[in-house]
Nucleic acid binder design. Structure first.
Lengths: 203, 203
DNA sequence: TGTGGTTGAGACGTTACCGTTCCATTCATA
DNA sequence: TATGAATGGAACGGTAACGTCTCAACCACA
């Protein structure tokens, strides 16, 4: 998103200095470190700027406030889950889904920031929007997994999709983000096995 | 916990005024409201005192700091899950477990504070201790459910208990606290059904 | 009823962050 | 190379919370 830089460029076709991309990225990095360290609500843009070796104007020129800054930073981080194709069976699909989740949840910064996003989403509509956007690709992939299983005949047409979508990520999220345990390859297999059984039992 | 009031009383056997319990409880209530509203890291004891209609000394005389205050408040809230006896089958036990979870997760304040506790637990050891203590009774009940199922022969002796304990609360937590959806009686039944199937598939 | 210790509420100085403004520097264009 | 717009960093006044301290009110006991 260069939303605002491009706005400005359009307004200034003649000679002009441009925002340094490297500083923008340094600001993103500093934001995430501070976020992980203090949580969003206690996040100080002053500290972020200092950590990035910049002045506060560098932030306020780029973004109108903390939320928009965080919003674009989250987008830039690419918290999105990588898509994947049909793995041939529900259990294989779920294993692939869990493995993608694990990749995301393994980032130490993600593990710290994600519960914070959810906590803050309970308080602010803007953060709710951010959290929804983060969840979007995950939910989309989960839906595809369910749909494929139905068309394979592994799950009944009439399955309660809401509940099915509850089961897909929950055990991994619980273990890795809430409890903060690691997840070995063998345990990942067992989680996929259990989740598959849970889904197949839903009718 | 009257930890410190009793200390003081012991040191002052002669005539003395005593901390008013009603004010202490008003402070707890104010703490929770402010906590839910601003999150722990942005929690201001000044606001808590004001909300309780008290001065700040009322807080600082009772507790050395925010964390200890929160610690005792959480204990006083009784976030502990109610114990329950053998319901005759694994699925019935799980349903009872989920129902107890639902009671706790339905409190609007709990729903806001719980993710915040977990987020903060990733940053501070003291909050980690609080969160562990909150989780204690839940984990104990979960273990009992597993043990009973094993002795009934519904689960194998060699079941991976870690994973089993992951599955027991995770889908309910995910739905009610992370996603913030409600959970109807029928959905609760399906969650128990799915969780039971997941556990039985783990060997 | 008087006395002594403890209480609750508010005031105080300090620190940290907010969001804005200022100014020298930098860079794309002419 | 000269120009001028937009930049980056720092300084500014204002606000809010911190943790401490003071002091009048209160309460249990003698």
């Amino acid at each position: 998103m260069e939303r605002k830089s491009s706005d400005r460029k359009a307004r200034a076709p003649s000679g002009a200095a441009v925002q340094k991309i490297e500083l923008t990225e340094a600001l993103y990095r500093a934001l995430f470190f501070e976020w992980a360290e203090h949580g969003f609500s206690a996040l100080s843009l002053e500290r972020v700027a200092a950590r990035a070796g910049a002045g506060k104007a560098a932030i306020y020129r780029r973004w109108p406030g903390k939320l928009q800054f965080a919003d674009e930073a989250v987008n830039a981080l690419g918290l999105k889950m990588a898509a994947f194709g049909d793995k041939g069976s529900l259990e294989a699909d779920i294993r692939a889904f869990h493995r993608r989740l694990r990749i995301v949840f393994r980032h130490p910064v993600v593990r710290k920031i994600l519960p914070d996003i959810y906590a803050e989403a309970a308080r602010s509509d803007e953060m709710k929007a951010i959290s929804d956007r983060v969840a979007q690709t995950r939910r989309d992939e989960a839906k595809k997994v369910i749909d494929r299983a139905i068309s394979r005949g592994e799950l009944p047409e009439a399955i309660d999709r809401d509940i099915a979508l509850d089961f897909l990520p929950s055990s991994i999220y619980w273990r890795m983000v809430v409890i903060k345990s690691s997840l070995s390859e063998a345990q990942l297999r067992l989680h996929a096995q259990g989740t598959t059984a849970a889904l197949k039992s839903l009718w």
